[in-house]
Amino acid sequence: MWLIKSSIGRKLVMSITGLFLIMFLLFHASMNVAAVFSEEAYNMICEFLGANWYAVAATGVLAAGFIIHIIYACWLTLQNRKARGGDRYAVNVRPKSVEWASQNMFVIGLVVIGFLALHFLQFWYHMMFAELAEKVGINVSLPDGIASTHDGYAFIEYYFAQPLVVALYLIWYAAIWFHLTHGFWSAMQTIGINSGLWMKRWITASNIFATLIMLCFAFVTIFFYLKSIM
């Protein structure tokens, strides 16, 4: 199977799963922005994404996307370290045209996963998981003052009122921003939709796209923090 055995095939899997995860981020960012405008609209989305079969199925597909992306990342990184050989250069200089993010995608990815675990514990565990657990008779206790697993708005208000959580999330967004600025155009390059002219376009699009998505996330986070101290 060439998606496993060939280097270009493995990279193709990275790029397709990466683009899929970017689509998810776009959806998640749009969903969050809804919370700024309407509590009702946001909670409607939360209910829609609760323990319904389609939401659970979609979560499964999303999780598969993450897992494949992570497994391939580890695999490619190990292979690449081996290909580099045992002896390392004594002097290393990064040329100007080489982005810092591009050479540190694995480490940035690790940071992203670390914060993802925190995010899951805070939100998903208390929402979709709690609802699923309830169906089999296990009770997950919710944070103080939140009555329903569907009350996503209350979760946002609860967590983003805490300065430490807000700071951690902003660091997380910065890490994802770095990951996306390289990831998006790199995916296009790997799929082969690139040329001398399109290179500049894709890199610019990458930067704009990553900035827009992460600004949406940061805006919602800061908005709710300010709302809590007003």
């Binding site: 055995k5 060939s6 280097s7 493995r10 990279k11 490619l76 292979q79 690449n80 081996k82 290909a83 580099r84 990064r94 040329p95 100007k96 045209s97 080489v98 982005e99 591009s102 050479q103 995608m105 390289h182 155009w185 790199s186 390059q189 790997t190």
Partner: peptide, 18 residues
Amino acid sequence: MDELGFGNCTNTRACEAQ
């Protein structure tokens, strides 16, 4: 190329810079 143990390209662009 794969058989000879060269790595997987991650589009860092260090090659074209050098």
